[in-house]
Nucleic acid binder design. Structure first.
Lengths: 143, 143
DNA sequence: TCTTTAATATGACAAATATCATATAATTCC
DNA sequence: GGAATTATATGATATTTGTCATATTAAAGA
């Protein structure tokens, strides 16, 4: 459904949401350990997100990655679309090209409501929303 | 969530459910084309399912794969457990070892109800159920 | 302006997963 | 019992995906 890369990206962004600000940028090497993602791999992912303006970054001393207020207000699905592309998440469970509401595959009815609900959540919930949950002890971001 | 192998296996089994019987066994080479799965790959998967008694088979002339009545009455989840193992399907969205109801990851609440519902369906619906849907034009099994 | 710092770009390497090939064993039919 | 047929077992190859390494570019501070 979502790739390992997207999972890592989400973890990274949530970490930034919790610990960074325009005034307090964070380097990859200080993010990778607490979220348990290989440094070079995380770097690549954050670079991609930065290029797509989903997170912010500056280089040089005092530089690093961070989230602007605008970044924070974006829905989670932007992250997975940025990393996995639009298709992956919407693909049929059996990966059938022809599967849709009109010609559903045998599993379509079993999965469709669940997946729609999940995608809806990803579109509605912002990065900030989830970060707040973590801050309030409602959810956890361990290794 | 479920692997390509499981998808292929499900397609294969549903094809057998529709076209085979104890009296009418079918060879892999006659299954792979209509469901659009590479022959040798499908063979391997069906062999595994056969070994785990999820489908039936006999070798030699007039042999092939088929579904007994008992086979048909089994829930779908058996197929995916046989191919992917028990863990994969139940794993956390972010692949966090420590994620559970007590210490949910940030995405847990967004995904959990959807996934539970899907797994429940896989446990309830039998191979026969889905085959009937296909037979009745409610769902479709194309390439 | 020079040095240091940290992101960026690019591509090589590794591991996992999907795909294919070959030899063997069991069953049928003659 | 022998030839043909089809599943089984095992392992090799290819592709995808994840991981790592290196050189380059931009910013900061002296």
């Amino acid at each position: 459904m979502i790739s390992t890369s997207s999972k890592y990206a989400i973890k990274g962004v949530l970490f930034l949401a919790m610990h960074s600000s325009e005034a307090k940028k964070i380097m990859v090497k200080d993010i990778c350990t607490p979220i348990n993602v290989p440094q070079a791999y995380l770097a690549k992912l954050l670079q991609e997100l930065s290029r797509q303006k989903i997170i912010s970054s500056t280089r040089g001393p005092k530089g690093g990655f961070y989230l602007s207020d605008e970044n924070r207000s974006q829905p989670l699905i932007k992250i997975v679309h940025a990393i996995d592309g639009q298709r992956r998440m919407n693909a049929c469970v059996l990966s059938l090209k022809t599967c849709d509401e009109n010609r559903p595959c045998p599993l379509h009815k079993l999965v469709s409501p669940a997946k729609k609900q999940f995608i809806k959540s990803l579109k509605e919930k912002t990065i900030e929303n989830l970060a707040n949950n973590i801050a309030n002890g409602i959810s956890f971001l361990p290794l």
